[in-house]
Simulated assay, not measured.
Amino acid sequence: MLTNAECKNATCPPGKKRERLACSGGLYLEVSLAGSKRWFWKYRKDGKEGRMALGSYPDVGPKEARDARDAVKLQKSQGADPVMVRKVEKLKASRTDGDTFKTVALEWYAKQAPHWSPGHAQRSLRQLERDLFPWIGNRSMPDIHAMELLAALQKVEERGAVETTDRVLMLAQQVWRYWPPGSTQRDITEGLKSRLTPYRGKTFAAITDSVRLGSLLTLTPSKALY
Rank of each mutant, 00 (worst) to 15 (best):
H145Y: 05
L219M: 14
A53C: 04
D143V: 05
G61K: 09
T189L: 03
A161S: 13
K155S: 08
F101R: 06
K63E: 08
G50N: 13
K223D: 09
R167H: 11
M141Q: 03
L106S: 07
R200H: 15
I136L: 10
P181T: 08
Y226K: 07
R212S: 12
L196M: 11
K111T: 13
S24F: 06
S32T: 15
V211E: 13
R130E: 14
T208N: 13
A71H: 12
K42E: 02
A65Q: 02
M141W: 03
F133A: 10
Q173T: 12
L21I: 03
C12D: 03
P180Y: 06
W176I: 01
K17E: 11
K155L: 14
Y57T: 01
E157A: 08
P180I: 06
L2T: 01
P14A: 12
P58N: 04
M52R: 02
V72R: 01
A121I: 08
V156F: 04
A10F: 03
A146H: 11
V88T: 11
E49V: 03
S140I: 02
A113N: 08
K223F: 02
A206K: 15
R51H: 03
N138T: 11
D97T: 15
A121W: 07
G61C: 05
R186A: 11
L128A: 04
Q185K: 03
R18H: 02
G25H: 01
L149P: 04
K73I: 07
G191N: 10
D97Q: 15
K87N: 09
P114N: 12
V72Y: 00
A146I: 06
G137R: 03
K37S: 07
S32H: 03
S117C: 10
D46I: 09
D70M: 04
W179E: 05
R95V: 13
N138D: 15
D97E: 14
T103Q: 13
A53M: 04
N138Q: 14
W179V: 07
K73C: 09
A121Y: 05
A151M: 10
K223I: 06
P221Y: 11
G137T: 11
G55R: 00
P118H: 06
P13L: 06
W41S: 00
S94I: 07
A10H: 06
P181N: 12
D70R: 03
F40V: 00
V83Q: 12
S77D: 07
R66M: 03
P13Q: 07
A172T: 04
R86D: 09
A205N: 13
V83D: 04
T203F: 07
K92N: 11
R186D: 11
